[in-house]
Simulated scan of single mutants.
Amino acid sequence: MGCSSVSHSNLKNAIIAFLVPLPSILFFLSFKSAYSQSPSSWSALWTWCYHHPLLLANVLFFFNVNFLFWLIGLIQSTHWMIDPYWTVIPVMLVHYYASHPLGEYNWLRSRVVILLTWVWSIRLIHNYFRREKWQWGAREDWRFTDLSQQYGRLWWWASFFAIYVPHQVLLIGLSLPLHVIHSVNEPLSMWDLVGTVVCICGVVIAYTADTQLYNFVSRKEEEGVGVPILEKGLWYYSRHPNYFGEQVWWWGLVVFAWNLGHGWTFIGALANTKCLAYVTKLVEDRMLKQDNRAEAYTLYQKTTSVWLPCFKYSPLELKSKDA
């Protein structure tokens, strides 16, 4: 009975996840259909959608993600859906910017960036589902659960501002280079190659780190015993190599935008870096609260870089730091 209930919930959540972006998709298709007609027949709404692609993306995000996801979260008493959609929304945005009638861009640069975005997304969604044992909505992010306990009865409305509004700011901000790439038509340059290499390096680092972490956790679950923390592979050189790889990916996109004269789009990547700094603190505080890991992790903190992979501190360096 329990297994049947889990399967039913898994199927239900999968169907919800596939259906939930339909309002935005159908609205945009309606707009594209209207665009194919004479501009003189456009309504004021379609004219506004044509002239303001970035604002339209924000409006669709607000109603289709912020409001609808929040409403579904309240009904289900779990805000799980924003996690898998973190990996899907940038893919939807890059195709939206590429197909918007106002878009003007270098075709090859666009296809390279679209392919890179798909690779990033597949890597991240694969990691999400293998971590969740291939289930849809089995649990929400532990940070949301902690926040719900802090807010108590106020969480039903506070969750909208604590979870969804920040996700809009981050995802729209991080995807600003995708908008620039599909707004400026300039020939390819050496910097496009640099951006491509940086993005690929970020994806490879993040995938390798997440795979090493997944294998470590799986072994601990199977054996029931083992070393308290992961300190091998990339995790030997960095305490959070997966976060480092993720940041490298987004900063790689900034290289593309900077090359096109819009370096200001770094604000999204910078905001994400600051957000990951806060998340890093939360993760490490959580590790230190676990009695079986606290001592080992305290030493790990003293000897290992937070993000940037580098060699461990030597005993002499530790003494000089403590002094």
Rank of each mutant, 00 (worst) to 15 (best):
W156N: 01
L308I: 15
G103F: 05
V59M: 05
L171I: 15
T145I: 04
H182F: 14
E231M: 12
E132A: 14
T145N: 08
W120T: 10
M92H: 00
P23F: 06
W107R: 10
L60C: 14
T298W: 02
H182Y: 09
F69P: 00
R139M: 13
I205C: 06
T280I: 11
N185H: 09
V306F: 01
L270A: 13
E140A: 10
Y35P: 00
Y300T: 07
L193S: 12
E222R: 11
L154H: 12
S43W: 10
G195E: 07
N10L: 08
N215D: 15
R131K: 13
I125D: 00
S5M: 05
E284K: 08
I181E: 06
F266I: 15
W156V: 13
G173N: 10
Q150S: 03
Y243T: 10
S5Q: 10
V225I: 12
L26N: 10
H167L: 04
R139V: 06
Y237F: 14
L54N: 07
N66F: 00
L170C: 04
E222T: 11
K12F: 13
H262S: 11
S7Y: 08
L318W: 04
S148G: 03
S9K: 12
R143G: 03
E284R: 04
F31W: 07
G152M: 06
N66D: 15
A271D: 02
W42Q: 04
L176K: 02
A294F: 00
Q212V: 10
P101R: 03
S9F: 11
R109V: 01
S121R: 05
C3R: 06
A138M: 04
V119M: 05
H262W: 12
H167C: 04
I72R: 08
S33F: 12
T280N: 06
T304S: 09
N13Y: 04
M92R: 01
C275H: 13
L102E: 08
R153G: 01
L74P: 01
